[in-house]
Design a protein around this nucleic acid. Sequence first.
DNA 1: GGAGAGGTCTGGAACGGTCCAAAGAAGGGC
DNA 2: GCCCTTCTTTGGACCGTTCCAGACCTCTCC
Lengths: 335, 335
Amino acid sequence: MRPPTIRDVAERAGVSKSLVSLVLRGSEQVRPEKRRAVLAAVEELGYRPNAAARSLSERRTRTVGVLLNDLRNPWFVELLDGLNAELYASGLRTLLADGRQGRRLGEDLTHTFTELRVDGLIAVGTLPDPAAVRTAAARMPTVVAGTREPVLPDVDIVAGDDELGARLATEHLIGLGHRHIAHIAGRGVVGELRRRGFEAVMREHGLSGSATVEQGDLTEEGGYRATVRLLGAPHRPTAVFAFNDMAGVGALSAAEELGLRVPDDLSLVGYDNTYLARLRHLWLTTVDNAGHDIGRRAARRLLDRIADPARPGEVALTAPALEVRGTTAPPRPLD
Amino acid sequence: MRPPTIRDVAERAGVSKSLVSLVLRGSEQVRPEKRRAVLAAVEELGYRPNAAARSLSERRTRTVGVLLNDLRNPWFVELLDGLNAELYASGLRTLLADGRQGRRLGEDLTHTFTELRVDGLIAVGTLPDPAAVRTAAARMPTVVAGTREPVLPDVDIVAGDDELGARLATEHLIGLGHRHIAHIAGRGVVGELRRRGFEAVMREHGLSGSATVEQGDLTEEGGYRATVRLLGAPHRPTAVFAFNDMAGVGALSAAEELGLRVPDDLSLVGYDNTYLARLRHLWLTTVDNAGHDIGRRAARRLLDRIADPARPGEVALTAPALEVRGTTAPPRPLD
DNA sequence: GGAGAGGTCTGGAACGGTCCAAAGAAGGGC
DNA sequence: GCCCTTCTTTGGACCGTTCCAGACCTCTCC
């Protein structure tokens, strides 16, 4: 009842197991009739090679571990898609681990990847436990995607240019005539960079005085709360630039609840251009962060690094693009 | 530069490799001082067991393959979460493959799982290639989750009771006073079942004559288009029950675009209670399909089936629950 | 003091592939 | 017909574990 092995195939085809192995790996050095005999035996027995045996012998697994921050964040899923496409094309499989689960179990997930002897690791997004990435990176080729940390020797970083993206969003709002603009900030390095871009542009336009920053988080709830605080303040902004689309949607809800119309009373910009922003009912102006593209680049970086593990780590930034939709407009004339 | 093996550990600790193996597997039959020596050597060398070697010898991988329809559908992600939690607790890893990718490459993904000798397979949602599930199921314990097909011998099915869910939604609308109700139908068995539930309730209330079914698909776009058609027809419905939340959001957009207010002019019910429906700005009345729970159950079924591969396939349905939010209300009094 | 019974520990055979050196077969040239 | 070269094919070692039968201790008991 056991699955057939290469020896079973060899016996059936009347050849040695080595020859079967040669045929299966596509060697040219095999006479056509033997090749046919082997392939026929494979077919008849329904033989499938055993990946564990193969990788034990070859000392590689053709598998890449992906440590993901949060599958619920659509942007990460997009990135993952790009990653998969590129890796698959190079004959590498992808083993996905959701980081939230991993935090519960300490650095267990990187342990798992180490035991599996994955050929490489991609860490996507800001992970709960950066130390785990460090130890993992010491053992296998590693690329960080979609965020700028942790910065480690021999680890590549592939991410969007968050500061530039924030500049685009802010300049768009200023170009429309807004002066009093608020930013709902996110956490981590990415949050920091987007905030910095926002503040820099405001400063360049002499608007530092009317720039507000309110701390949120990456969720709708956070965006909602931050916006309620912003709009409840005495001198309310006419535009809000949110850390990401989820927070942007939260802001949308808050505005609506307070009786403000978007974009007439309040302009709103999100970030990431996830499918949320594309929903017609939301139709959020946002910054396209090219998730798919970043995924592909990260995959290529990893392939390079697997080929040459000692190459110095590089930082590659992708330029984001503004995507203007329905939630931004000139401010209403002053009353 | 190779990672240390069990032999390296044995040498360092001054014992045999067999003893190291015993210690690592937690045997009680080892004297404490030897155990300490082994663990110290493991620590010093940074030893990690090689999963490939282990599974080759043990003839199992402690890994479950998950064939997923679409990572972009939040409901599936929720299901996945439940699945992971339960499997992880039982010491099984999860290997995720996105089906869309697989379709491009034929039944390649099940091949991959076969080669990896995963201990079991979970097929989530309606997959592009049902034949692949059939061949896979012949080789390994298999559970279908989140849909009702394909029905195969020795394969368990764990899903929501779609017909019941549709009944709940429809009865809710009728209870509010709606008479002319439309349904945006989905594809596959799940679409079929929800439509059937809708039609049955309409019939029971003598409303067959004012029940409309419009074909959509699982996306926002599909829901939007279907709703535009519905609302453009001469005798427009006062309520729409959509196949899922995505389609429901599309319907929301269509209604808005045509100048109808939800829920005053049009009531709307979705399905799945994904986080989309929970976004304050959408606040969609929907049917909670207990994705997490279904995931957990599917995992348990698979564990049972791994323990006893010959047990006959069962169908387990989870009862959904109506989640009333802001998109349903009594119809406006007739003009 | 010797037999028997545990409790500990070990060597070697799997597991199912890849890889390599060498054997065997087939053709070419003289 | 023999030697040399070039293709084909093969046996056996190896990859890093687990598993098992048996060896080796150390007691206990008579």
